[in-house]
């Protein structure tokens, strides 16, 4: 055993020696862990991609770099921090708390880890020309430090992006403070919370407290008929029961992440609440939670209730997340 260790040591020393005989200092990584905030699910980190400060920084640099695409766009082009990492005109999905996601994209087309999702983005969305990264004066050195490989491949790009996205955690809203007993909600927000958490609004059955989503898919009664534009989950599973189902979005920072719904049909939270209040379409595919007798066509909330519900939704805004310089362009 000792001889194996000796041989390995010599091999490593040989690897780290420059031609001129000088020993190259071994690059060290600063590994970090993530802790789940109160009321959040445990974090399942990907052991094959251990988080390091250097890896996260590399991911952040890539996130804001147009080198990933051939169209002059970066991830941040459609995911602006001030809009909770979404963007109005493209109706892109918010990059918030993705570390807890098992399904990615609105129809859950990508199932797995953040690394899997980023592989899709690099290879199938951006069609990243990896040779540009390998020829860049800076990136090869940064990648080598994090992943220990001389040549960059799609995998390392995806893994670095996944490291950065893992850190985009929003858990510091007024509602979070209220749950910890540190802040009071005002009377309007409290009535909104009551609507949210009871069968008056029934929001909580899909938007569970914590993530404010459920990692699942629902047909909320947006449409009466279905085609390839609104098949949703059905396009992935081809299972009839999944027609019109879309992934439940997190409501964190929902105030800043409009427009709303998979096709961006609603531009304001007031419109969204009014849809739930009076616009639900009943089909064989509509989620049972949406079609209560007596509430077939909505929640029948009063005008004040609707205002209160919107005010509660705004209590899910986390300005410390939106302004965190660790998430901004480096």
């Amino acid at each position: 055993m000792k001889s194996v260790v000796c041989i390995l040591s010599i091999f490593l020393i040989a690897l780290s020696c420059k031609k001129d005989g000088q020993i190259e200092p071994v690059e060290t990584l600063t590994f970090v862990s993530l802790e789940a905030p109160v009321n959040f699910p445990e974090i399942q980190l990907n052991n094959s991609n251990p988080l390091s400060i250097e890896g996260i920084e590399l991911g952040r640099k890539l996130y804001y770099d147009t080198i990933l695409s051939s169209t002059g766009k970066s991830c941040s082009s459609c995911h602006l921090q001030t809009s909770s990492f979404t963007e109005n005109s493209s109706n892109s999905q918010s990059h918030v708390n993705l570390i807890w996601n098992q399904y990615f994209l609105r129809n859950g087309q990508i199932e797995g880890t953040l690394e899997d999702a980023m592989m899709f983005e690099v290879e199938s969305f951006f069609h990243t020309d990896i040779s540009k990264l390998n020829q860049d004066p800076l990136y090869p050195k940064l990648f080598k430090k994090v992943f220990g490989k001389a040549e960059i491949t799609s995998k390392e790009v995806a893994y670095a992006l996944a490291q950065f996205l893992s850190t985009l955690i929003s858990s510091n809203s007024k509602f979070d403070s209220y749950l910890k007993g540190q802040t009071m909600l005002n009377s309007s927000e409290l009535n909104g919370l009551d609507i949210f958490l009871t069968e008056r609004g029934d929001c909580f059955h899909c938007h569970s407290v914590g993530l404010m989503g459920d990692n699942s898919f629902h047909n909320i009664g947006l449409d009466l008929t279905f085609n390839s534009l609104n098949w949703g989950r059905y396009a992935v599973t081809m299972n009839e029961v999944d027609k019109g189902k879309f992934k439940t979005p997190s409501l964190r920072n929902v105030e800043f992440s409009g427009p709303y719904m998979h096709d961006g049909r609603f531009s304001s939270l007031e419109e969204v609440v009014e849809f739930y209040n009076s616009g639900v379409q009943v089909t064989a595919y509509t989620d049972p939670i949406m079609t209560k007798p007596g509430k077939e066509f909505g929640l029948q909330l009063s005008n004040q209730d609707k205002i209160d519900l919107v005010n509660f939704l705004k209590a899910l805004s986390d300005t410390s997340f939106l302004n965190n310089t660790k998430f901004s362009k480096p």
Partner: peptide, 16 residues
């Protein structure tokens, strides 16, 4: 219960 996505989705509201 351990805070998993499943367990959190099964939470019964504190107000009830």
């Amino acid at each position: 219960l351990l805070n998993t996505v499943d367990n959190l989705n099964m939470a019964w509201p504190v107000s009830m």
